[in-house]
Every structure is written in C-alpha cells, then in structure tokens.
Design a protein around this nucleic acid. Sequence first.
DNA 1: GTGAAAGCGCTAACAA
DNA 2: TTGTTAGCGCTTTCAC
Lengths: 347, 347
Amino acid sequence: MSDQTADSPPPDVRPTLEAVAARAGVSRATASRVVNGGAGVRPHLVERVNVAVEELGYVPNHAARTLVTRRNGAVAVIIDEPEFRVFSDPFFSRQIRGISRELVLHDVQLVLLLVEGSGDFDRVSRYLAGGHVDGVLAFSLHTDDELPAVIGRFRVPVVYGGRPGPGDPAPDVGYVDCDNRGGARQAVAHLVSLGRRRIAHIAGPVHQTSALDRAEGYRATLPDGLPALIEEGDFTAEGGAAAMSRLLEREPAVDAVFVANDLMASGALRALAEHGRRVPEDVAVVGFDDMAPVAETTAPPLTTVRQDVEGMGRLMVRRLMRRLDEGPGADASPVITPTELVLRGSA
Amino acid sequence: MSDQTADSPPPDVRPTLEAVAARAGVSRATASRVVNGGAGVRPHLVERVNVAVEELGYVPNHAARTLVTRRNGAVAVIIDEPEFRVFSDPFFSRQIRGISRELVLHDVQLVLLLVEGSGDFDRVSRYLAGGHVDGVLAFSLHTDDELPAVIGRFRVPVVYGGRPGPGDPAPDVGYVDCDNRGGARQAVAHLVSLGRRRIAHIAGPVHQTSALDRAEGYRATLPDGLPALIEEGDFTAEGGAAAMSRLLEREPAVDAVFVANDLMASGALRALAEHGRRVPEDVAVVGFDDMAPVAETTAPPLTTVRQDVEGMGRLMVRRLMRRLDEGPGADASPVITPTELVLRGSA
DNA sequence: GTGAAAGCGCTAACAA
DNA sequence: TTGTTAGCGCTTTCAC
C-alpha cells in the first residue's frame, strides 16, 4: 500500500519554472514567456507549457519575480485616522470595497496601513523606503495632516482619496474627490427653488477639506440678501443634533438647512422633532452622502446629495494604475466626480 | 556648481547590502548578520555596519530576503461578507484595528482580501497557493460558509475570528472568540436576579455561530419553569425593533429581554417606547457587545455584555505568530475570551 | 568571528 | 522563435 492519496494533494515543495520547462520539454525562458502571456511563442509550445503548468500546479514565485522586475504587484492603502471611526464610517468601508474590487481586476494586492498618529509615520516611512509597494492610495482628510508630506518624501506614485490639505509639498498630487462645491450648490439651489428664505448650514469639522468645500459651495450659492447661517458639527448624529439646536436658538425663523453629511442630518431631524418643528413643512432638510442605511430610514426619509463612493475608490485605482504604466509623466490632475440630488421626503 | 542638493534626497537606486558591507569594510555575510540582529559579531564591527546602514539609508530588499528565507513577512486577512456591512460594522473595524496594531509589533504586513461570494474563492485559492503570505487570519461568520474548506486545502496556518461553522474540514483549526454562551448566561442571570419572570430573547441570524451560541446560553440559563421566548432578528436596529414588536404581540406580559447585540437592542428600545413600555420599569433590556456609540447613547443607556473586540484581534495575531514560530505542532486550540456585564440604565 | 561562495526562482538581454 | 546566460539582493553553509 502506498501512502499517496488518490486526489493528488498540494505538493509540499512548490514546483519551479525549471520543473515546468523540463516537463514541457522547453527551456526555462520559453516557459517563462508562456507564463507571462506567451507572446512570440509557437502555439504548439504554448499548449505544452500550459499543460505542464496545470499538471504540476505551478504558481509563479512572487518574490523571485519581484526581485528581477522590481514590480511588487501590491499597493498600500494608507488611512490616517486617529479614532475608531476609521472603518465604522461607511464612507471608508465603501471606498475600500471599490478599491478592492478594482485592484482584483488588475491582479494587484492591497496592503493595509492604518496610521494612528504621528508616531506611526516612522513605520510608514520605513515601509515606503523599503519599496515594498508600487504605489499608494492614501486618505488624508485633515488639512493639518502631515501624511502627505511624509509620503511626498518618496518617489512612490500616490493618489489621494479626497482633496488633501494645503500643507501638501508636491503640487502635482493626484486625487479623486466628489464635487463637494457642486453638490452643495445643488442642495442650496433646491432649497431656494422651494421658496425657502432662511437657509442655514450645518458644516463638518473645519479641518476637513470636504467640509470646507461644502461650506464654500453653500456660501457661494446663497442668493444675495439671504443671511449665511452656519453652525459647525463633527459629522456625527449627536453633533448634528446639537448644531441644529444652536441654530434654532440663534435663528428661530430658519426654514431650511443644508447639512454637510447624512449622519448629522439624522441628528438634525431628531432635534427639529424635539423642538416641535415639522419637516419639511416648517424646516426643509437636505443632507450629503446618500448613506443608504441612514438616509432611507430617517423620518421623513432624507433628501440628500449622493456621491458614488465606491466608484471613487475604483477611480483611485485606475488613476494609480495608469501612472504606474505611463511613468511619472502621466496626468496627475485631480478627478472630480459628479454628485446627484436625491429627492426624498425631507425637502 | 554641482546639482547635488545639500540635504541628501532619497537616492534613486537603493543601496544594497553589498554597498553597506563595502562602506563598513566587512564582507556581505557580516553585514547581513548585523542587519539581522548581529549575533556573534564583534561589537566593534556591529557598530561600523550600523553606521554604514545609517549613512546609506539602507533598507533590506524584501523580495530578495523572502526568496531565500521563504518567509513573506505578511499575513492575509480574509473577510467573507457578501454585503456592504463588512466594515460599517464596528465589530470588524475594531478587530482589524487590533490586528493591525499587533501586526505592527511583529513587523508583519497586512494583506486585505475581501471576498464577496463563492466566485472569489478561485482568486483566494490562487493567492494562497502562491504562498505569498505566511499565515491567514480569517473571518467566517456563517455556518454554511465554504471559506474554511477553501482555506483548509492549503498548508497555510490559519486563525479564525469567531467560531467557524461545523462544515469545517480540519478539526484543529484555531480560532479566537468571546465566551458567547457565558456572556448570555451573565445577561440572563442578571435579569433573573432582578426578579423578572418572562425573559425573552431576540436572537441573531441562525446561520451565525455567535448568534447560535448566545441563544444557547440563553436557553441553558433560563430557570426551569420559565418559558423560552425567542424571536430572530438580523443584527440591525430595524430587525431588533421588528422582533420586539412581534414579541410584544406574542407575549404582552414580557418583562425582560436579552438581545443578541446592541444594534438590535437599540431598535428594541425604540419599539418598546412606541408600545408605551417603560424601560427598565416594565421591561428590562440587556444587549451584547458594548458597542460604545450605541450602548452609551440610547435612552436609557444600555446594560450590555462587553466583549473586548480589539483584544480578540490582537490575540488572533499572537496565536498565528506562535504557530508560525513553533511550526505545525503548535497548540491550535480555540481561545475563548471572557465577557463582562456592564450595568447602565436599561436593566 | 569572519569571509567566500553557492544558490533561492525568476526575467531579460543576447545569441543562435 | 527558442535557448543560453547573467544576474536581481539576500541568507547561509562551510572553510578559515
């Protein structure tokens, strides 16, 4: 009795290209050519090599390949968020999903680097210096974030998710962001078209570029003569409720509010209900994000500005891949994706 | 005028060990020894090499090292969740944070593999077959999940987050889970000690092991003579509210409910309020997870069973690292972490 | 304790 | 079109 099982288990030592070549009766070079697309190899040999690959269960050794090609087949996703919100925010979750899906198409791996403070910059620097990844997808949402400066010290191609802050050293950094100003414009224009006259804004934290851009869109769109009424929240439901309460205190006659994200808008709705205001009759509310689990379940459902977060993730990858293919000369201009006003019950 | 800038920019070609050795006046072998801990090298040479490393900004080439050591310095985190919930669930977010933090300590990279259905198994198989990672941390929360079977086909060490389902081929798979049964016991015992007599349970989806274990703990702890009242939810707030409503319909006299997670508990609280029940006077409620943003902000704040999710992530890594160090003979028994009842206002 | 040398598995000139 | 050959940068016996 042999101890070999019938359904050939994965071999303990992985076969090399050498073994494949031998079995197919060709040289290692030809085997390599076939494994890498088979350009310029006679079909007949291509077939033989492929059979050998199949029979042996050959899988290329990534390290060996990287050693000679200097391509890693991996990109780093760097997220610099000090708090737990990192992933619990559906924003990241969807964007990463989009990135993951697109990366799969390019057969590139995703190395996740979570940064939790400037103490981690050393580690990131060391990693980037090691040249372990071909490119970087980074999220740096705060205007005072040092991450772009850290990354900028290396020659590694980067694409940011969201407009990075002004502290950025390189002027040609690529990024993908939705049209925050345009979205805000759509929201405010809609409220104006509804005949509202006291249109307030609950903004996000001032050190986040998306919050700044939305607030700017609000200011720019507000018709002359209408007062700008702004309260700052922190992108959480609680923060939104508190900001709404302050707003009602400052200006009881407010009849509309554009809120910089859906989470805060849900809080604002709650605050309005507690203050006895009807939505949308007394106060119309428009959010931002169209974060499904929130916007669809509020009472009333939220009219909001939709951004295609997953699509943005995919675009980040495509942009990066293009730069990897075309070299440093490739287009590094920002990509701004459109937003769309989704009408529901709140405005 | 030379075009060299003063503050030595990162060199275009990275220095090799060879260069370090030359500069330190030693052989490549000695330089290598120093870079890898310097055991058995005279202090005097260690110093010289380290200086050279510093001056040249030497960083070891990972691919070259992997090629000879057959160690990748990377582990894959595989998450098999078809829906968007993946990261939006703070559970994953914290666990990954824990994993990331611990991995950093071991100087090991995190490769993220998101699986969205059986169509992705091929890709995962190919990746694992490629031997690109030293080990795997996997999340397979559904009893009918094929992922464990897929992973089991390879010799790669695995540690699961949460008890994998029964379909698992290998009996010795390691996993880290909290004491779901014990936690349920704490919750029910507390409700009993409060003198409650009609203690219901809102369970999670039947195909998740954590939900099963919690429900089993509930049943086992319920004193003889008390009826088991169970409604199934889907771990969302809406599902919890719906389940609570059904419960009230079936058994209006219910005076306590142990809910399988905090999100559903928050929905249950809402449903109870809508049905005019006071909490905890009429109905006492205990949740599970101690998910801060939820449990602390409900009205009343939620009494709940805390599990240390980040700690579980760290334990997964430690367990895996141990197996990598000690080989296949290492202890592969499950790790069950304790839970703790956190008393707030709801029970 | 240190160095010389052999290779890890692969790709890419270059020859044939 | 195919094969030969020279490394990629590193670790690791094996002599010294």
